[in-house]
Amino acid sequence: MGSPMLALENIHAGYGRFEVLHGVDLRVPPGKTVALLGANGAGKTTLLKAAAGLVPTTAGQITLDGVRVERIPPQKRARRGLMLIPEGRGIFRDLTVRENLAMFAGRRSVSEAIERAVAAFPVLDGRLGQRAGSLSGGQQQMVAVSRALIADARVILADELSVGLAPVVVDEIFEAVNVLRAEGRSLVIVEQYVDRVLDVADYVYVLHKGRVALVGEPEQCRRDAVFDQYIGAATHS
């Protein structure tokens, strides 16, 4: 896979006394997309949160572009180019769309941030003064994904981007994902539509009960009986 942009090694993490991840390894090469799959409760969201710094790790190391980051707080990881789009619309619900984009702007100017978001999702143009929490689910997710388009993040961790969205909106969201891939960003995608994510992924990791059960390329995985055992139901649904 070459020198990774993000490497998680032997990650142990959980909530309070309850350990969820029991030694997970994951490598994301530069410019590549990793699909992270697994059943409910496998530890996918916890792994993304641990990488972003929202869940503390009890053991293991996280390397971002060669620099150890497991001991630094989430905001510093974000400033170093690691972005998590959390499950359930990563937006500030009580702020307007414009204010959300201003928060996401980072080093860019607010007008540039708005320009980039509107270029990807034209529907947001007429909603800039609206409270983000009052947008439709799809539009909220567009605002959330705009964050990835605006920021200069090198690694984007996207958790369940399509959950609860109409298929036509999911298409738009995945178009934005393709833009991010084309820009050479590294992505880790947790997704319920397994076939869709396998179409865009370069590598696949399957988690089972807090451990990596399977690693491979999408085509290999599609043919693998073990993969079918873990994920089969989802690919055929």
Partner: peptide
């Protein structure tokens, strides 16, 4: 509004 998300935007 969202403490965690604030840290995620740096």
């Amino acid at each position: 509004n969202d403490r965690d998300l604030t840290s995620l935007v740096g």
